[in-house]
């Protein structure tokens, strides 16, 4: 047992991922909720709540601290935006070119809806064009009877 621990200690020391000895801080659900809307700066597509990279753990610790200081969610996010830029936010702020993204569902519905409406109007118009008038039907029936 001792030997395994010693091995593991060597192993973790070699990795030197987090300073040993100091346990990570206790974190409330609120911390994880806020962290889930922030990007882990060194990961590939993970949020600061999901990732266990050193930076993410540090971010969660900072969020916990700022919450203790009584800072609002907005202020905490602002703090990270100032440090890393808006790239850190998983929901881009609603302004400028980002409106294109936020309005995408509306744009999609409008464009597809317009296409659908035009298609249906066209199909209906053709049906009306092709439809035979009463006189034509009678004329055709007469010809059928004659033949």
């Amino acid at each position: 047992m001792k030997r395994v621990w010693a091995l593991l200690l060597l192993f973790t020391l070699a990795l030197a991922q987090t300073p040993t000895g100091e346990p990570p801080p206790d974190l409330s659900p609120e911390v994880f909720r806020i962290a889930s809307e922030l990007r882990c700066p060194v990961c590939q597509g993970e949020s600061a709540a999901e990732s266990n990279a050193g930076v993410s753990q540090e971010m969660r610790r900072q969020i916990a601290e700022m919450l203790k200081e009584g800072k609002s969610e907005e202020a905490i996010k602002q703090y990270f935006v100032e440090r890393y830029g808006e790239w850190i936010l998983y929901a881009p702020p609603k302004r400028g070119i980002n409106w294109l993204l936020w309005l995408a569902p509306a744009i999609g519905l409008l464009v597809f809806g317009f296409g659908l409406w035009r298609y249906l109007a066209e199909a209906r118009r053709r049906e009306a064009e092709l439809a035979l008038s009463e006189e034509e039907i009678r004329a055709l029936e007469r010809r059928l009877e004659e033949e």
Partner: peptide, 26 residues
């Protein structure tokens, strides 16, 4: 929406040079 959301960071970077992230909150 999924296509645009997935490619949006590339589009913005190409158009303005800014970096944005699009993830679950959006």
């Amino acid at each position: 929406v999924v296509v645009l959301g997935t490619l949006f960071p590339l589009i913005v970077e190409a158009a303005t040079g800014d970096k944005v992230s699009v993830g679950s909150p959006f």
